[in-house]
Design a protein around this nucleic acid. Structure first.
Length: 377
DNA sequence: GCGGGCTCGCCTGTCTATTT
DNA sequence: AAATAGACAGGCGAGCCCGC
């Protein structure tokens, strides 16, 4: 009853009075994105729902604007400024009335857009829907104060994500150099490690064909996230038809899917837990001559994936696969186990840095989210 | 200009028939 | 019986395009 007052929990003390509830359509206008294909190359950025796409020689709008997806990703608004173009699945906003885009951007980040999804299939929003969404706004001065305060946090977030990107790129670049042997490590005493020698993979890999005696947690292989619980991917309770069609996977085992190895579907099971996965995966582990951490990066680096693509067999492009027998016969150059360990240590120290930075980033994002909850009505 | 259907690419597989 | 080839499966995002 008493929440008639439109006042945020947390507020700069120089401001008072209620915020006003308005329809989004009252405070801004929405512009539609357009096809950009007829345009020539230039230096005006083109944005799609997923972000920057390309550059053209004409612009749709010049100024600060909040953009939001029309189809596909509809809950990731972005703030653009200067001259830009948006594709037809991305709305932009303009003609702000008694409001400023930076403030609206914060509000838009708070809104659960999926609730406004009208489509049954691919999520989508329409102009009319967005215009009807209610927003609570204070006077412009307060908006500016809040926006500038939040922008300092955004700045921090940007710095951290930029750092993340740099670290990721650095790791990628280093891996390229290391695996192509353009960059070599030296022993502690300064001398060189021996030359890398070509070996068939069967020198290092041992297949594990074990069928679980009791039901174990069902796991699944993904390119992005590695070996993860099946429930994170599928709604359904099973992975394969019968309980007899699973294989056991233990800590440090590798799995790859013959159909998808050429896309990089190979990962190491990092948990202590024994799990079961589809029998269609090939499961194997490294002997004492191959460092697992080194191996997983080596097997999934760009050049290796190119190689699998070349070697995959099958009549049609989409039916190509890499059989385990063939896989075992692939010849790769390997350093000694000592050098592998050195490389693994170096790369894992990078991983540590990356995950520390990611932690800081996530913390800042959480902090911002909490502020958004408190500083807005 | 706007909304909605279409389609394609990508990812991620599983199941079955045939050959070895 | 195991390995391999071939076929079938389906979610989902987003660009493309068309009709109103």
């Amino acid at each position: 009853m008493s929440n008639k007052e439109n006042i945020p929990k947390l507020r700069f003390k120089e401001f008072s009075g209620e915020w006003e509830e308005k329809a989004t359509g009252q405070v801004l206008k929405i512009g539609s994105g357009k096809d950009y294909k007829h345009l020539e190359n230039g230096n005006i950025p083109v944005y799609g729902t997923g972000g920057l796409m390309t550059y053209v020689n004409d612009y749709l709008y010049d100024g600060v604007s909040v953009c939001i997806g029309r189809k596909g990703t509809i809950d990731k608004p972005m703030l653009l400024s200067g001259k830009f173009w948006t594709v037809d699945t991305l709305f932009y906003t303009h003609s702000f009335k008694e409001s400023i885009p930076e403030f609206i951007f914060s509000i838009f980040q708070k809104i659960n857009w999926k609730l406004y999804n009208e489509a049954s299939g691919v999520p989508s929003l329409s102009k009319a829907t967005i215009e009807k969404v209610k927003v609570n706004v204070p006077k412009k001065q307060e908006q500016e104060k809040i926006a500038s305060f939040l922008s300092s946090i955004d700045k921090k977030i940007n710095q951290l994500s930029k750092k993340d990107e740099l670290l990721q790129n650095y790791k990628k670049a280093m891996m390229q150099k290391i695996f192509s042997q353009k960059l070599r490590f030296k022993k502690e005493d300064g001398s060189d490690y021996p030359k890398w020698e070509k070996y068939e993979l069967k020198e290092f890999l041992i297949e594990r064909v074990e069928y679980p005696e009791e039901l174990l947690p069902i796991y699944s292989l993904t390119i992005e996230k590695g070996i993860i619980p099946k429930s994170e991917r599928y709604e359904r309770a099973f992975l394969v038809k019968s309980d007899y069609e699973y294989k056991t996977m233990k800590e440090n085992d590798f799995a790859y899917n013959p159909m998808n190895l050429r896309f990089g579907a190979l990962a190491r099971h990092k948990e202590k837990l024994d799990v079961m996965v589809s029998k269609y995966y090939n499961i194997f582990y490294c002997n004492e001559k191959l460092n697992s951490y080194f191996a997983v990066l080596y097997f999934t680096n760009y050049n290796s994936i190119q190689f699998y693509n070349k070697m995959a067999t099958g009549s049609l492009e989409e039916k190509k696969r890499v059989h385990f027998r063939e896989f075992l016969k692939f010849k790769f150059s390997f350093p000694t186990i000592e050098e592998q360990t050195k490389i693994a240590n170096f790369l894992s120290s990078l991983d540590t840095k990356i995950s520390q930075n990611k932690k800081a980033l996530e913390e800042t994002q959480r902090f911002k989210k909490a502020l958004l909850q408190k500083m807005f009505v």
